[in-house]
Amino acid sequence: MEEISLLNDAKLRGLAVLTGILTIILPFIGSWWELKFAEILVFEISPFEFNIFALGEKIYIPLIYWTTYSFRVIIVSSGVAMVIGGLIDRKWSVHLLRFGAGKIIWFVIGMIITILLVIPINLFLSDIQSQLQNQIQSQMFFKIPVLGEETVSLRDENVRITFKVASELKPPFLLSVALSILGVYLRRKTKPSGSKAEGEAEQIV
């Protein structure tokens, strides 16, 4: 496979700058995944923010807040690295770009794993619900949808309670997927080729 030197390819450098800018913006455009139990319990999740609202009250957990805050700093740094790597012609530009381009995909993989955690949670829920049914003849049966909507209905003597459990991927997640694909592409195209790449870089410097 022919190796392309980032420093000689204007298109690749433009792509790196664009990916970098979008990466910098990514943590500030909202959550990636939303899980709602009516409006009673709302989860707005992304690697950069983890908002939980219980009856309108925001839940603040320092461990989660500061972890997501750190991820925000990491991803912004990655974006800045990509922009600098794409703009400046130096020997280290490729390394800077590769450092930035490889980050997003890990956040996307992490997010997909988080969403798929719903499957074991559902197994646990169905276990609890069947136990409850034996004990109090509960009519409540529901699963958390991985994606989509589920209507939950509870019936007592004179009261029927109905609400929706909805799970939805938000547009920033699609952007993150696109950015991770671009990141992988940029990494592949700027793969250091030992002495050859270094030689090319030295010639330009």
Binding site: I59, Y60, I61, P62, L63, I64, Y65, W66, T67, Y69, S70, F71, V73, I74, S77
Partner: peptide, 26 residues
């Protein structure tokens, strides 16, 4: 390192109280 610094800062914000750090305002 960034992650560890963030977590350490948050831990200090909670005056090194593990319960506060993990449960927050719950």
């Amino acid at each position: 390192m960034i992650l560890l610094s963030g977590i350490y800062y948050g831990f200090n914000e909670c005056k090194k109280d593990v319960t506060c750090f993990i449960t927050g305002n719950i």
